[in-house]
């Protein structure tokens, strides 16, 4: 399958890190991301179960405490055809 582009940006301000994620994915009734997970320091901090009702090329943002500049945040996803993707980017 074609490589699916996944982007993540984590930026810290004060003690709050804002994570913004964008996955290029069709999100149709027959092909959609089911699970998306975010890890910081090896710990799952956010996980979501999605259906076809999330818009195509999903955008998702959340905020967490306890992050520091330079620490990695990992995004992984899996769709209903068992395609997967992941990306790791450090907090800016």
């Amino acid at each position: 399958m074609a490589r699916i582009r996944t982007r993540i940006l984590s930026r810290i301000k004060g003690d709050v890190t804002t994570v913004k994620a964008l996955v290029k994915h069709p999100m149709t009734g027959t092909h959609f991301i089911k699970e998306i997970t975010f890890e910081h320091q090896g710990k799952v901090i956010m996980s979501a179960n999605w259906g076809m009702g999330i818009s195509s090329n999903p955008y998702f943002s959340f905020k967490f405490k306890g992050g520091n500049k330079g620490e990695p945040v990992k995004l992984s996803w899996k769709d209903n055809k068992d395609h997967t993707g992941e990306i790791v980017k450090n907090i800016k």
């Binding site: 901090i45 956010m46 818009s55 943002s61 959340f62 967490f64």
Partner: peptide, 9 residues
């Protein structure tokens, strides 16, 4: 440690 806030489409 996650704040009770989310944004999506």
């Amino acid at each position: 440690n996650v704040l009770p806030w989310i944004k999506t489409r």
